[in-house]
Computed example of a mutant assay.
Amino acid sequence: MKTSIILTVIGPDRPGLVSAVAARARAAGGNWLESRMAQLAGQFAGVVLLEAETDVADNLESALRELEGDGLQVQIQRGSDISAPVRHHVMLDLVGHDRPGIVQDITAVLARHSVGVETLDTACEPASMTGEPMFHAQAQLGVPEGVDLDTLQDDLEALANELMVDLELHDPQREQPEAAA
């Protein structure tokens, strides 16, 4: 039987850091399945989903905790056997002048509709012509059954107008051409 292990590491960025984490996981019987990693303000931050046979999971966790000796902060959590609720996936794209509170405002609307944020990538970059900071966000959202996408889109568009940002909600299922009968 297999066990899922979620590893979070944070620490000063340096060459070879990901390789060191991967080597330690592999040597202790872990299989690297999925990850999200970034260098942020000189710090490395990563989240990794590992899988291991249940009988070696404790040894894998111990081996991963040894990364703390390399100057990393380590958090380990075992995955749940509870299956996630069925959700419809939609994509959200946002761009606008940077200001505090954009993420909180958007996610508050999503929470009111019981929509989960499955992935979120954000960046603040200078605009090409003016150099003003522009905030960019792209998210994959999990929309539960019964949530009206049109109402969600209306609420998000109203907020986008208030924030003066461009926001698009893409539903891949709605955008696919219907099969010919």
Rank of each mutant, 00 (worst) to 15 (best):
E132N: 09
R78K: 06
I76A: 03
A63H: 00
R36V: 03
L7D: 11
Q104P: 02
G131C: 07
F44Y: 13
I6E: 09
V103P: 06
G69H: 05
A23C: 03
M1K: 11
V117S: 00
E178F: 10
G69E: 13
P85L: 09
Q173M: 12
V47G: 02
G101W: 12
D58Q: 12
D55P: 14
T107E: 07
A123D: 15
P15M: 04
T107G: 11
I5F: 05
Q73Y: 05
G146L: 03
L94N: 06
E145T: 09
R36F: 06
E68Y: 00
P144K: 03
K2G: 07
H113L: 01
L72N: 06
L149H: 02
Q153L: 14
A20F: 08
E175A: 13
G131S: 04
D93G: 11
L60W: 09
A179N: 12
D121G: 01
I106C: 04
E61K: 13
H113C: 01
V165A: 07
L169T: 13
D98V: 05
T8R: 10
L60M: 08
R14D: 00
E61C: 15
H136W: 15
A41E: 01
G42Y: 02
R14N: 00
R112S: 09
V109T: 08
T3R: 11
E168Y: 10
V109C: 03
R24M: 10
V95N: 06
L94G: 02
T54G: 13
L7G: 07
M37H: 04
G29C: 02
Q173A: 15
I106M: 07
F44L: 14
R14Y: 00
K2S: 15
Q173L: 14
Q138R: 14
A137D: 10
F44E: 06
A52F: 07
V165M: 09
P144I: 05
L167W: 04
R112Q: 09
V74C: 04
R24K: 11
D58A: 08
W32L: 02
G116N: 14
V109E: 05
P12R: 12
V147N: 05
L167K: 02
Q138S: 15
V147Y: 01
A57C: 13
G42F: 08
G96E: 10
T54P: 04
V147P: 12
E162H: 15
A160W: 13
Q73L: 02
W32F: 04
A57S: 14
A25P: 04
H136L: 15
G16L: 10
V95S: 08
